[in-house]
Amino acid sequence: MFEARLVQCSMLKKVLEAIKELLNEATFDCSDAGIQLQAMDNSHVSLVSLNLRSDGFDKYRCDRNLSMGINLASMTKIMKCAGNDDVLTIKAQDNADNVMFMFESQNQEKVSDYDMKLINLDQEHLGIPETDYSCIIKMPSGEFARICRDLSQFGESVVISCTKEGVKFSAAGDVGAANIKLAQTANVDKEEEAVTIEMQEPVTLTFACRYLNSFTKATALSPQVQLSMSADVPLVVEYKIGDFGHIRYYLAPKIEE
């Protein structure tokens, strides 16, 4: 038996928003520790890794490990039926071929349940190696989204160049060229508004705008985003999810010819 209760179901709506542009379907692996999802997009350029710890939920029970293959368009249809303030309960029997989503209004006067068929997905699990990154940039997630959106008007690629002075995002194309430089913030009132850079050595890498823009669909999950970069390895874009865990996106760099 699997059962997870979430008082504010808006978190799951935001998670779905954050993954559905990259993935059509995904396996939600449920265990005692929580819910994990790991999947590459169809072109194997990016990978989504989601971790929601069981202790973040208001109630969580998972007697046996359960892998739920879910069509994300179907799940989106169901989650659209929930109010942001509804209490969500997800339930599945062991070895079930369906999962139930129950939404209760705050005053408990409206209760809806939606039964969704699970699908068989033959997804392989990947080991992500521990990496010491040359540069770790933390910045407001809204600022990162804005930069990706603005630069995508100029070209298909964004060059991210990090030194100890700051980080520079550049794009170029038919219209011309665009450069956005962010320095580390000297002092800010709120931690979430800070730009901080931990640099071992400078790094410059090129990434596809399209994927970066898809990652920024997670902006609503966290006020800050962390970018980790090393030469010739995938970029990691991480959004923390409150008391639950995180969503991480890995993106293969573009290779100069």
Partner: peptide, 14 residues
């Protein structure tokens, strides 16, 4: 010009 790399080489299949 640049070509898009893929992730396949970076991660080990468990």
């Amino acid at each position: 010009s640049s070509t898009q790399g893929r992730l396949d080489g970076f991660f080990k299949v468990l």
